Amino acid sequence: MIDYAQARRMMVDCQLRTFDVNDIAVLDAFDDVPRETFVPKGREPFAYIDQTLHIDAGDETRCMPAPMVLARMIQALKIRPGVAALDVATGYGYAAAVMAHLGAQVTALESVPDLAAEARSRLGTTAQVIEGPIESGAPKQAPFDVILVNGRVEVRPQALLEQLKDGGRLVCVMGPHRNAKVTLFVRAGDAFGARPLFDASLPGLKAFQEEAGFAF
């Protein structure tokens, strides 16, 4: 039988710490939140591998980012207790659980009904799960201090950015598949600065695909 507590410790020591994850609170959150609880059923033995795990979402695309990628993304958000957080394309809710462990008040957004139901079941009272178009964000719960997008976007997530508070931060994987980068947006008044952090790729989210141009 797998010792999941030991697997979490190995993940933190061998994946996160070696990939410039140095925020103690983030490391502790990844060591405490049971990732195996949030993977697809039957995939628990693969919960701690250094790979993105795909989640069956019908015609949509959902995933659990590899631990080291997700940890760097969450670290970039600089979450502090009491902040309002939005977890976009939450899947089964793992990232939402990690952010809640850091003290955030988390809204988890999912457009796939079956996944939203699973997230509610797995998260319990840890986060508020709402169902709706992921590209539209959660305007009734906005504004947010931090927003995390679980998946790759090809276009600027403008509606999400506009739901940030002044000084708020959004992190996502942005760009075409082979040239995608984890990108951090920071709001300053009505302006949004963007800074690429490191190379990474995730399955693309259909709601944020770039429209194909005309072919001649």
Rank of each mutant, 00 (worst) to 15 (best):
F38R: 01
G42T: 14
R35I: 07
M99A: 11
V69Q: 00
D56A: 14
A57T: 09
A66S: 12
I55W: 04
V39Q: 00
P34Q: 05
I49Q: 12
E44T: 08
Q105C: 09
A104C: 05
P45F: 04
V33K: 00
Y92D: 07
F46V: 05
E44V: 07
A85N: 01
L70I: 03
Y48R: 03
L70K: 04
L102D: 06
P65H: 05
K78N: 10
L102Q: 11
G93A: 12
I49P: 00
A85P: 02
H101V: 10
A85K: 00
A104L: 01
P40A: 08
P40T: 09
V83P: 02
A95E: 05
A47G: 03
L70V: 06
L102R: 09
P81M: 13
A84K: 10
T90S: 14
Q51H: 14
A85R: 03
M99E: 11
G58A: 01
I74G: 03
T61K: 14
D59V: 06
V98R: 10
L70R: 01
Y48F: 07
A84T: 08
P34H: 01
V98F: 11
I79D: 02
K78W: 08
F38D: 03
E60D: 12
Y92T: 14
V83A: 09
R62I: 13
D56K: 15
A100F: 05
G58W: 02
T61D: 15
G82M: 15
A71V: 02
G58Q: 03
T61H: 13
A84F: 08
T37N: 13
F46G: 05
A71Q: 01
M73N: 10
A66P: 04
P34W: 06
Q75I: 07
H101E: 14
A84S: 12
P65V: 03
Y94A: 01
A47I: 05
A47F: 01
R62W: 15
V39D: 02
G91T: 05
A66I: 10
Y48L: 01
D87R: 05
A66K: 10
P40S: 12
V69T: 11
Y94V: 01
A96T: 00
I49D: 15
F46I: 03
F46R: 06
V33H: 01
H54T: 12
D32V: 09
K78P: 06
G58N: 00
G58F: 04
M99H: 09
V69L: 08
A71D: 01
H101N: 11
A71H: 00
D87C: 10
G103F: 14
G42I: 09
D87V: 07
D50G: 05
Q51I: 13
G42E: 13
D56T: 15
P34S: 02
V88Y: 02
Y92Q: 04
A84D: 06
P40Y: 07
A95N: 09
G91P: 05
M73C: 07
P40R: 07
A84I: 04
E60M: 07
T52R: 10
V69S: 02
M99S: 08
L86C: 04
A95P: 03
G82W: 15
G93T: 06
I79Q: 04
